[in-house]
Amino acid sequence: MIGRLRGVLVEKQPPHLLIDVQGVGYEVQAPMTTFYRLPELGAEVLLYTHLSVSETAQQLFGFADQRDRTLFRTLIKVSGVGPKMAVAILSGMEADDIARCVREDKVSALVKVPGVGKKTAERLVIELRDRLKAWELPRQDLGPEETPASPIPAVTGGAQEEAESALIALGYKPTEAARMVSSAARQGPGASSQELIRLALRSISQV
Rank of each mutant, 00 (worst) to 15 (best):
S205H: 03
T175C: 00
A95W: 01
Q58D: 04
L196K: 00
L128Q: 08
S192N: 05
G3T: 13
R123W: 03
E55L: 12
L167I: 05
K173S: 12
I2M: 14
M85C: 09
D96H: 07
V21G: 04
E195D: 10
E55H: 09
S108I: 06
T147S: 13
P174E: 09
V28M: 03
V207T: 10
Y172N: 02
I152S: 11
E176T: 14
D96M: 01
G23C: 05
P151N: 08
L18D: 05
H50I: 04
K84A: 14
V8T: 15
V10W: 00
I152D: 07
E161S: 13
Q160T: 13
S165I: 06
M180V: 07
D20M: 04
G92M: 03
S108T: 12
P83K: 06
G82W: 09
D105V: 13
R67T: 09
A43Q: 15
A64W: 01
S183W: 01
I76E: 08
Q194L: 13
E44D: 14
F63D: 00
P31W: 01
P39L: 02
R4S: 12
V87I: 15
P83N: 04
K12V: 02
L71F: 06
T33V: 01
P14Q: 09
G188R: 11
A200H: 05
Y172W: 12
V102W: 08
T49P: 03
R123F: 07
F35L: 00
V102A: 10
